[in-house]
Design a protein around this nucleic acid. Structure first.
Lengths: 215, 215
DNA sequence: TCGGTAAGCTGACGGCATGACAGGACAAGT
DNA sequence: ACTTGTCCTGTCATGCCGTCAGCTTACCGA
């Protein structure tokens, strides 16, 4: 089932090959963190991995292809985001707790993977379907959970009927992602990291429930 | 005062030179809309403008430099965003109106300039100070207005004291920008354009005032 | 009208990244 | 030792980058 790892020309990769491949991915990942996407060259990645450009092209069609691979791995790990929202309560003090933990976990995940997420975001915004589906895959768990929570509160009459749960959930998730990408930007608006989180949590809680949290 | 337009090697650009320069910028702008940022080459831009790569380098240090120029022009136009928020009321029906018009105007502005804004966003996220300041310049008017609005409501006791106006405003602006960049993404979550706007307006209103709008 | 001067443009070039291929090195089984 | 298939790299044609010298064009004052 788990499709074997293959080289570009169709051979199956053995133990050594997979190690090389992974090393290339790791080095690419590092490069993405330290220099602008536009300037990341195959030759640099290969050099850093102690191999040659030709080797890189044996495993990946181009830089973009390798980035997709890294992103795919990250998306798999991103399942951890599900735990932040699945089956949580959004009423009373527990609701405030849920919002806080969601914000905390989301920002942490984004910070840990910011370099690749930046590129995924760019690809998605440019309309590349592969990146775009990947972005959905990563955000889906959170998005669906939030959407369900809104829909449930709505069915109980606690949220207005003309609210579209998917739209609200998507917007909140987009907000979290954007703020995470530009965390540094906030400091120059005089907002400290620590202050940011509770305010974000407040917005999430307001968006989901329509009410201020009880703390 | 208005620093004369200069070539890279210090000459002042005359009428003809400025026209060429602008043509290059226009063509670059077009290219950014139609192909991924990473694949935009100087030679393509030059060809499209009916000139040679050497001419491009006469006016700009590199692609990034030219993009900054385009973004700068756009930031100047972006003053129109100020009108969406300056001196508006956030109470009662007028408040709902303000939120709606802000969302509408913001999305429109972003859609019109999405290609350059994508690149600015990327540059800012990568930590490039020039892009980062540019992004602030564009968003500042909206951000400051929202921040002021929250602070005012706060001083009247209508918003909790532990809310940080700048953090809330910044987060809302980031949300608007992110949603605008990924508008297409929402359609595959089953959310239509037309549905998106009122829900965004709702979130903005909730964030600023802490209350549901009266419609 | 006629230089003189500065603006404007380009051909050409060394340098480097890309992407493809064929062939050599290596490990594992027989 | 020999075979087989994996793994890596040297090499090469191609194409973009970024620079420079030098040519053309426009403007201006005498």
């Amino acid at each position: 089932m788990t499709g074997q790892v293959r080289t570009v020309d169709g051979r199956v990769a053995g133990r050594r090959g997979q190690a090389t491949r992974q090393k290339l991915l790791d080095c690419l990942s590092e490069m993405l963190s330290s220099s602008p996407y536009r300037d990341v060259k195959v030759i640099d990645v290969a050099r850093k991995a102690g191999t040659s450009p030709a080797t890189f092209y044996q495993y990946f069609p181009d830089v973009e292809g390798a980035v997709l691979e890294i992103a795919e791995q990250m998306a798999a790990e991103g399942a951890e985001l599900t735990e932040l929202v699945a089956g949580r309560s959004w009423v009373g003090k527990a609701g405030w707790q849920t919002a806080q933990e969601l914000v905390e976990g989301f920002l942490e995940f984004w910070r840990r993977n910011d370099a690749i997420l930046r590129v995924v975001d760019l690809g998605a915004a440019e309309g590349d379907k592969r990146f775009y589906k990947l972005r959905m895959k990563i955000l889906n768990s959170v998005n669906n959970s939030l959407s369900d929570a809104v829909a449930e509160l709505q069915s109980k009459g606690k949220v207005d009927k003309d609210v579209n749960p998917a739209a609200v959930a998507g917007s909140l998730v987009a907000m979290l992602a954007a703020v995470a990408s530009h965390q540094k930007g906030f400091t120059s608006w005089g907002v400290k990291q620590a202050e940011l989180k509770p305010n974000l949590a407040l917005l999430v809680h307001l968006g989901v429930t329509g009410k201020k949290p009880t703390k």
